[in-house]
Amino acid sequence: MADQLIRATAADGGIRAVGVITTRLTEEARQRHALSYVATAALGRTMSSGLLLASSMKREGSRVNIRVNGNGPLGGILVDARLDGTVRGYVDNPAIELPPNSLGKLDVGGAVGQEGYLYVIRDVGYGYPYSSTVELVSGEIGDDITNYLVTSEQTPSALVVGVFVGEKGVQASGGILIQVMPKAASEPTLVEILEARVDKLSGFTPLLQAGKTLPDIFEQLLGDMGLVILPEVQMVHFHCGCSLDRVLGALKLLGQAEIQDMIEKDDGAEATCHFCGEVYNASSNQLAQLIEELQA
């Protein structure tokens, strides 16, 4: 199934649901960054979470940045997700690998660490971005994003994200976010019912591997609560807006002396984009042109 995002409502608009499949884009990230199994799972979960959070934004150009800084060996995770369905991201230590956890699953919590902070920045397309910081609760990403939604946005939420990585790469990845809107949040029974249903899920990726579609999963969770699946299917993909022109612009900020040093010592410059792993090479002639522009 293609990477996609769909939205739904239930309980007369009192419930908002969003589901996303990110299998191909997570595999692309794995290949671009040469990620280990556990690093793939951690980044994939965070990218799915970013797309789910960005889906509620309204203005064109809106985006969500998620930064996870835990005390585990994986180091930090940074993801940039946009309302248009594009996402990119990286981890500090992509090669780190850990034994399975006590449940026999990839130990994302151990790799990320249970102590540290989750930072979420919402850029709504105008004015100053909104920034929130919460402590990590497990390092498993899904629990931490849910805690952020309840603590910072004060919205009762249930988030399930997952990545299944096999010998041939990412075989299933994605997630689902269900939120109780303010007009229905005063009904504790509704919140409890949703929490119980989400807890009964065997996880998200097992459903995908069993052939379930996003509408199937919505039906399983909300089918008896006036489910309405919105017709728009949004395609999502890994995308980074880096380019050689942007690299040259960044090099220009280093100043004439530093650029001249690159010409004399290295006969050019090489830069790698953290977000996508793309390598850019600037020739000595291109660097000389930057010096001329600075002198002008």
Rank of each mutant, 00 (worst) to 15 (best):
D3L: 13
D3G: 10
Q4L: 14
I6S: 01
R7N: 05
R7D: 03
A8R: 00
A11N: 10
G13S: 08
V18T: 09
T22Q: 04
R24I: 08
R30K: 11
A42L: 08
G44N: 06
R45D: 03
T46A: 14
M47G: 05
S49N: 04
L53M: 11
A54K: 00
S56C: 10
M57S: 15
K58H: 09
K58Q: 10
E60I: 10
E60Q: 13
R63Q: 14
R63W: 02
V64L: 05
V68N: 02
G72K: 02
P73A: 09
I77F: 03
L78P: 00
V79H: 00
D80C: 07
G85V: 06
Y90S: 09
V91I: 07
D92E: 15
P94H: 09
P94T: 11
P94W: 02
P94K: 06
L103D: 13
L106F: 03
V112K: 01
V112T: 02
E115R: 12
V124S: 05
G127W: 07
Y128L: 12
S131G: 12
S132N: 15
V137T: 12
G142L: 05
N147K: 09
Y148L: 04
S152W: 08
P156M: 07
A158P: 01
A158V: 04
L159I: 11
F164Q: 05
F164M: 06
V165R: 04
E167M: 06
G169L: 01
G169K: 00
A172L: 08
A172M: 09
G175T: 06
I176E: 05
I176P: 08
I178W: 00
Q179C: 10
P182M: 12
A184Q: 04
E187C: 12
L190Q: 05
V191M: 11
V191A: 12
A196F: 07
R197T: 04
V198I: 15
K200F: 02
S202V: 11
G203H: 05
F204M: 10
T205Q: 09
A210F: 02
K212S: 12
T213I: 11
D224C: 07
M225Y: 12
V228M: 04
P231D: 10
P231Q: 03
P231W: 02
E232I: 08
V233F: 06
F238W: 03
F238K: 00
H239Y: 15
H239R: 11
H239E: 14
S243K: 13
R246E: 13
V247A: 12
K252S: 10
K252G: 04
D261T: 14
M262F: 13
A269D: 07
A271C: 11
T272R: 15
T272Q: 15
H274L: 15
A282T: 07
S283Q: 13
S283A: 14
N285M: 12
L290M: 09
L290D: 00
L290P: 00
L290A: 01
E293P: 03
L294T: 01
A296H: 14
